[in-house]
Design a protein around this nucleic acid. Sequence first.
DNA 1: TAGATTGTTAATCGATTAACAATC
DNA 2: TAGATTGTTAATCGATTAACAATC
Lengths: 210, 210
Amino acid sequence: MKKQKVSSAVIRRLPRYYRHLNDLHQAGVERISSNALGASLGLTASQIRQDLSCFGEFGQQGYGYNVSSLRDEVADILGVNRGHCAVILGVGNLGRALMENFHFDRFGVTLAAAFDVVPEIVGRSCSGVPVYHTDQLEEYLTQHPANIGVLTVPGRVANRVAERLVSAGVKGIWNFTNIELTVDAPDIVVEDVHFADSLLALNYMISEAP
Amino acid sequence: MKKQKVSSAVIRRLPRYYRHLNDLHQAGVERISSNALGASLGLTASQIRQDLSCFGEFGQQGYGYNVSSLRDEVADILGVNRGHCAVILGVGNLGRALMENFHFDRFGVTLAAAFDVVPEIVGRSCSGVPVYHTDQLEEYLTQHPANIGVLTVPGRVANRVAERLVSAGVKGIWNFTNIELTVDAPDIVVEDVHFADSLLALNYMISEAP
DNA sequence: TAGATTGTTAATCGATTAACAATC
DNA sequence: TAGATTGTTAATCGATTAACAATC
């Protein structure tokens, strides 16, 4: 096992490995070679072995990898077993879509609470998650620390809310607003899901042809 | 202007340039140097000049770039002025979030129609976009061609719906399902917005520290 | 044992950065 | 004019691929 900083390119591929290994496991596949795994993901066998070698030795010569144990290893690398805890800010359509349809727990994250300012939803609950008023954010986090803040608020309040999350001790922000967050506390991670950037890239790619 | 295949790394940066140039323009900034632009985006001046040089010569020695005309150039490169037309499949929370809060038109895309199977919403309209029954997809697209299909259906029907979109002439699929689409018609572009992959990457990054 | 496949080292390829002549 | 800044060529860096000894 080499001990060096893992490149972002590798990190971005790990979730795909994880997803595919899960599928294979569901399908009852027991073992897989780097060659076969690469073929179904559109990558070279070399790259997969190289990627995995950043974290340890998970295979066996002449055999390949055991699907379920490799899946478990990758899950572990990705931090699925660290008891991460999240709160979500903004219970609009997008917030609700995540709360109702996205299974945080499948990725090792407990969605503990939601916050909004709209009186009709504050005090109720949504998919089993209680919705509090945003004013109560700091008070809540003091009593129930969380390390992830999911940002599904309107763009204009995004930075303000992000600052509050960081002040309250959150380590990572999953940013769904189209705003470039200005948070730059040294060890805070911002993961952007910029719909606009994604659509523009798609736009570009389909505009190529004559 | 060099005429070579533009790398995906460049394409992914263009939307950020575009967003930032828009912000600058809104703020009344008239000119900017590659140096200043790089500083505010966390990139080197070299990289920005290198990236832009893939598409043309937009600056002026000793002056830099005119913000609004560079913005227009980038918009053009990204295909914002090509009259792209989209349909959305699946009017659940996520579909509605996109229809109500995401401004397709700001990115040069007209969202023309939505499709779902739930009787309560079929026949109605949402944010001015008519909702049809999914059975009518082919018929609709024959009469109103679209080149983008937005996929916000449940995962289990994702591939089936994707195939239908492709058969009906769509060129790009904006995939919000957590499924790896198997569509591989030669010139079809799939742009994935995999929430799970994004959250797992965030998980990893905040799990780093001791 | 023979065949398969790993982990790792070396070679290649591509992307980023640096340098600089051209010029506004 | 002098200073600033471009577009581009060359140098560096990092990531991907290929090769192969080790070994199950």
